[in-house]
């Protein structure tokens, strides 16, 4: 039991850390002036964290971090609208990257990341379409697809780099503090 709660604690700590990182990335990128003043064009730097978690952790853990980051970001920005916007984009991105990672067996990370970014922008555009109730939002689509590809490539390469260079998976997974006794307990239960 002690080892279980330690595991949970360290997992929570790890995830919390990632959420904070994602939040900071999000805030930083929103401070960067948008070169293309079309609503929704964001570098998507925070997706580095989402992708990283999908590779190294469990998908639902990536999901939780995403949600936490979104809620906090919306609270800080003070707008519900951007929350809806980012929620749709973030979820689609998460889902598509998760499926693709299975399909590619966690190879070709940059391609996965590009796809995620494309879905992210598409999701945002769908919400914009619903909110504005106007077909015009689709004229932004080609621009968002191209910028999504670029940012997706960027985040994918960064993520790849991190994945290769980061310390041992066990430590990051928060399982490095396993209690030897827990192993015996588990073995007996089976």
């Amino acid at each position: 039991m002690r080892s279980n709660s330690r595991m949970i604690l360290s997992k929570v700590a790890a995830l919390g850390l990632f959420a904070a990182v994602a939040l900071v990335l999000y805030i930083v990128e929103s401070l960067i002036p948008s070169f293309i003043p079309i609503p929704g064009i964001k570098l998507g730097l925070a997706n580095i964290v989402t992708l990283f978690l999908l590779i190294r952790f469990k998908p639902w853990e990536a999901g939780i971090v995403l949600l936490v980051r979104l809620v906090l970001a919306a609270a800080i920005a003070g707008q519900m609208i951007s929350f809806l916007y980012s929620l749709a984009g973030g979820l689609l991105c998460l889902l598509s990257m998760y499926l693709l990672l299975i399909f590619t067996k966690k190879k070709w990370i940059p391609l996965v990341s590009i796809t995620g970014a494309l879905f992210h922008n598409f999701g945002q555009l769908c919400v914009a379409r619903l909110l504005l109730a106007s077909e015009y939002v689709w004229t932004y689509l080609p621009y968002l697809m191209l910028s999504g590809a670029v940012t997706g490539l960027l985040t994918g390469l960064i993520c790849l780099f991190l994945h290769k260079k980061m310390p041992s998976p066990e430590t990051i997974r928060g399982e490095g503090m396993q209690d030897p006794e827990a192993d015996n307990e588990d073995a007996e239960k089976k």
């Binding site: 590619t104 391609l111 080609p142 191209l146």
Partner: peptide
């Protein structure tokens, strides 16, 4: 698998460029 992933992405990007 690589092609299956690459081709749709490439098509989307080319289509976007043409559209613009």
């Amino acid at each position: 698998k690589l092609f299956i992933m690459l081709i749709p992405i490439a098509l989307i990007l080319i289509a976007s460029v043409l559209w613009i």
